[in-house]
Amino acid sequence: MENPYIPYPVSIDAITIENDAKDLKTFKLTFDREEDLKAFTYMPGQFAEMSVFGKGESPFGIASSPTEEGYLLFTVKRTGTVTKELHNSEPGRKIGVRGPLGNTFPWDRMVGKNIVIVSGGFAFTTLRSAITYMLCKEQRSKFGSITTVYGARDPGELMYKDILKSWEANTNIDLTLTVDRAPDNGWHGRVGLVPNVLKEVNPSSENSIALVCGPPIMIRFTIPVLLELGFNKDDIIISLENRMKCGIGKCGRCNVGSKYVCIDGPVFTYAELEHLPAEY
């Protein structure tokens, strides 16, 4: 019997510091066994449990895209025991990855649609995956326009700076960056909270699907804006987070009503969430 609790052995190949506060790092992981790499097939939106033996496991959205072959990326905020240990690690360290877990963004439905992406802070990880996936040569033609609003507290907190720069120069995607606080100098993007900036960007809801990832408060204020823009509740896609342990729908803690974020989610439509208790 296959054991879903046992992680694949992987190695940390590279570590990138993502923000000025230095509490966000991206870990590039490579599989120790060729067959595990093959077995780990995923789509943007899914997550996995990263495992440091002796410290524990924690769930993270997969930040890499399946089109980036041969490795996985996870961006980790330093908050607790596992993440602290990861942040203190050096490249070369052996850790574990268990997954892929959860559902994906609704890729079947997204084909042929304009995609609006709204994100704030550290939750941008699986959207990095989604955008990278859509921008790759074989995929780009399947989607309409890609409009992205991504915000952070201040410029130093925006992640994936190199990639953001290349997307800003890329005509295949319309990227708007915003920060909550106006810095003294050198900031050419917008200043303002994500929901407000989204209103200014004013993307059309015509034949569009919106993907929303961010802290609960941002999600709460973004949804009315999207509804006002004319998005159907079914076309507002939200990725949730809840505390998790098993990731496979057994340990009982990540539920929102009768749905488990780990197996029924993390991706839900607003239409689904509307009927669930707000316990996330």
């Binding site: 002796g54 098993c246 340990c251 803690r253």
Partner: peptide, 23 residues
């Protein structure tokens, strides 16, 4: 009731086990 937690326990040499406990 079947909810559980998963935690790691290790000694100073870095040996240990991953356990599941009722939660």
């Amino acid at each position: 009731c079947h909810c559980f937690d998963i935690t790691d326990e290790e000694n100073r040499k870095g040996e240990g086990y991953r356990i599941r406990t009722w939660d």
